[in-house]
Amino acid sequence: CHSECLGNCSQPDDPTKCVACRNFYLDGRCVETCPPPYYHFQDWRCVNFSFCQDLHHKCKNSRRQGCHQYVIHNNKCIPECPSGYTMNSSNLLCTPCLGPCPKVCHLLEGEKTIDSVTSAQELRGCTVINGSLIINIRGGNNLAAELEANLGLIEEISGYLKIRRSYALVSLSFFRKLRLIRGETLEIGNYSFYALDNQNLRQLWDWSKHNLTITQGKLFFHYNPKLCLSEIHKMEEVSGTKGRQERNDIALKTNGDQASCENELLKFSYIRTSFDKILLRWEPYWPPDFRDLLGFMLFYKEAPYQNVTEFDGQDACGSNSWTVVDIDPPLRSNDPKSQNHPGWLMRGLKPWTQYAIFVKTLVTFSDERRTYGAKSDIIYVQTDATNPSVPLDPISVSNSSSQIILKWKPPSDPNGNITHYLVFWERQAEDSELFELDYCLKGLKLPSRTWSPPFESEDSQKHNQSEYEDSAGECCSCPKTDSQILKELEESSFRKTFEDYLHNVVFVPRKT
């Protein structure tokens, strides 16, 4: 048989008469490798580009789960590009990614509803959504962080984005990388972005840091009482949809009607710091009717980097990364020049730590249904340095008659930039024990000054392991946590139920 035959053949030295091919099969003959313009397919066939392209389009058009959109890589027609490569849609070739590779997620039936953290986790790592997304989240724990972890990498949506009755959302900033909504599939009414009845939605994105392009379709905003109209108009300008909307697409009466839409800028007039305090004062603000001013709200939190936005980490279910302080308005003076500047002394802060701070007014709604208010920009203030805590785990070892090696770990709280350490030492008198000992005694162990690591005695271990207080009263049991108490109650309830079950099964009433 021919060298490319495997198993047997019907005619000697003829690659077209093989029972099976050793390498690849091409047009009725066995070959060692697939010549151009053919590609290896499933490690035994040679196919042309049209064959591989037909497989790709067949799966793409069917949208069946589990099928493969075949691509070409290293002269092979394979189910998908290997790690580190992405497909070129024009020629199906796998090309190296520039940075992290995109991950295209194809949605069944063309859309997916995100109504819980669990459903959001199914899209973790996706960068391109081939379909439409509907966000409908009523509640949950730590929602802002969970949504950002699972949806934060999405850069492109081919269909539309719909935010509907998501009472738990305060902001859409968890879509931190969303840059493009194509609108290839539109919501009824030709809408590519749809926001309806979101009672706590206050911000779409921080438009000073976020760009969003909507290729096709219109915007729809109705019944978002805490979303200011200025935020919607800003989205029109940034996304390129200005002029597409009709009169009733953006409701003037049901958007922002319960919001404090600040239209003035508060400026800080005085800032002073110490290692654990920050004193702030800002310019006074009074609405047209000074009785509408209820006070100020001061927001602050630790910020290692200057990239904080107002609604980071917030949701309507209680999660809030900001510390909020309510401040009463100052006494009002008739003389504008003698107006008191409101302020606040922030206490209990960490030394040498940068804080993000902003302040906003708290006002009631005027009778004319106009909203007044003022808010400052987010500023960054760093507390002063102070003395560091003591170095940890000092170790001293003498390696000769004239040297001592000293080692330690950095302090747990540096409280500033540590530039150097101060080492103090003092000579001590020799131990009298060394002169009084009889060095001729056998088995004498000389006193040693070398360091030995501390260890816990058996008594201390027994005390720590004991669940009861000892007789001397030195140790006591740790208080039980809520989960331990709940577990004990469940076990007790189970024992009672099981005992009742045994009584009912074992003891049967005697027939009379």
Rank of each mutant, 00 (worst) to 15 (best):
K103D: 05
K103E: 10
V104M: 06
C105W: 00
H106T: 11
L107S: 09
L108H: 13
L108V: 15
E109T: 14
T113L: 10
T113Y: 10
T113E: 11
I114A: 02
D115K: 12
D115R: 04
D115L: 02
D115F: 04
S116L: 04
S116I: 10
T118M: 05
S119I: 14
S119L: 12
A120L: 08
E122W: 11
L123T: 03
R124P: 01
T127K: 10
V128A: 08
V128M: 08
G131H: 01
L133G: 00
I135C: 01
N136F: 09
R138P: 12
G139K: 10
G140K: 04
G140H: 14
N141V: 13
L143G: 15
A144N: 03
A145T: 08
E146V: 04
E146W: 08
L147Y: 01
L147W: 01
A149C: 14
A149M: 09
A149E: 09
G152A: 01
L153I: 13
L153N: 11
E155D: 06
E155G: 10
E155V: 15
E156D: 09
E156M: 09
I157D: 00
I157R: 00
I157T: 01
S158M: 10
L161H: 00
K162M: 05
K162Q: 15
I163L: 03
I163H: 01
R165T: 15
Y167C: 14
L169F: 14
V170E: 10
V170A: 12
L172G: 02
S173Y: 10
R179W: 09
R179H: 15
L180W: 14
I181K: 00
R182I: 07
T185K: 14
L186D: 11
I188L: 10
N190C: 07
N190V: 11
Y191D: 02
F193D: 01
F193N: 01
F193P: 01
Y194P: 01
L196D: 03
N198P: 00
N198E: 00
Q199I: 09
L201M: 02
L201A: 02
R202S: 13
Q203T: 11
Q203V: 05
L204C: 11
D206K: 15
W207T: 10
W207G: 03
S208N: 10
K209G: 10
K209Y: 13
H210Y: 15
N211H: 11
L212K: 01
T213K: 06
T213M: 08
T213A: 07
T215I: 14
T215M: 08
T215L: 06
L219T: 03
H222I: 02
C228N: 03
L229A: 11
I232L: 13
H233V: 08
H233D: 09
H233L: 02
E236I: 03
E236M: 06
E237H: 10
E237T: 11
E237D: 15
V238W: 04
V238I: 13
S239T: 08
S239G: 14
G240W: 15
T241M: 14
T241R: 11
K242G: 12
K242I: 09
R244I: 07
Q245E: 14
E246H: 12
E246L: 08
R247I: 11
R247A: 11
D249A: 08
I250A: 07
A251Y: 11
A251P: 12
A251K: 09
L252G: 14
L252A: 10
K253M: 13
T254R: 07
T254S: 07
T254N: 12
N255E: 03
G256L: 06
G256A: 06
A259I: 15
C261P: 04
C261G: 02
C261N: 03
E264P: 08
E264K: 04
L266Y: 01
K267H: 06
S269D: 06
Y270V: 13
I271Q: 14
T273K: 14
S274K: 12
I278G: 00
I278R: 00
L279F: 07
W282D: 00
Y285W: 08
W286S: 07
P288Y: 00
D289H: 06
F290M: 02
R291V: 11
D292A: 04
G295I: 03
F296T: 00
F296C: 03
M297Q: 11
M297I: 07
M297W: 13
L298E: 00
L298K: 00
L298C: 02
F299V: 05
F299M: 12
E302N: 09
A303L: 04
A303P: 02
A303Q: 14
P304L: 15
Y305I: 06
Y305W: 12
Y305Q: 04
Q306L: 11
Q306R: 12
Q306K: 10
T309S: 15
T309A: 10
T309F: 04
F311R: 12
F311C: 05
F311S: 08
F311Y: 15
D312I: 14
D312L: 05
D312C: 05
D312Y: 05
G313T: 12
G313Y: 05
Q314K: 04
D315K: 15
A316N: 10
S319D: 15
S319M: 15
N320V: 03
S321Q: 14
W322V: 08
W322M: 03
W322Y: 11
W322S: 01
V324F: 09
V324T: 08
V325W: 15
V325S: 10
D328F: 08
P329T: 11
P330W: 02
P330V: 12
L331N: 14
R332K: 09
R332Y: 05
S333L: 05
N334V: 04
N334T: 14
D335H: 11
D335G: 04
K337P: 13
P342T: 06
P342L: 09
G343S: 07
W344Q: 12
L345Y: 15
L345W: 15
M346C: 05
M346W: 01
R347H: 07
R347L: 07
R347N: 08
R347T: 12
G348I: 01
G348T: 14
L349E: 00
L349T: 02
P351I: 05
W352F: 08
W352Q: 15
W352Y: 02
W352A: 12
T353L: 06
Q354A: 09
I357V: 12
F358I: 08
F358D: 01
F358Q: 08
V359Q: 00
V359E: 00
K360Q: 01
K360N: 14
T361D: 01
V363G: 15
T364A: 15
T364D: 15
F365V: 13
E368C: 07
E368T: 12
R369L: 12
T371C: 07
T371G: 05
T371S: 10
T371W: 12
T371D: 05
G373T: 08
A374Y: 05
A374P: 15
A374F: 03
S376L: 00
I378P: 02
I379P: 00
T383L: 02
T383P: 00
T383K: 00
T386R: 06
T386G: 02
T386M: 10
T386L: 12
N387S: 04
N387M: 11
P388L: 14
P388Y: 02
P388I: 05
S389Y: 04
V390M: 10
P391A: 07
D393S: 13
P394K: 11
I395K: 11
S398K: 01
N399S: 11
N399F: 14
S400N: 11
S401T: 09
S402A: 15
S402T: 14
I404N: 01
K407F: 02
K407H: 03
W408S: 00
K409C: 14
K409V: 11
P410S: 15
P411D: 03
P411H: 02
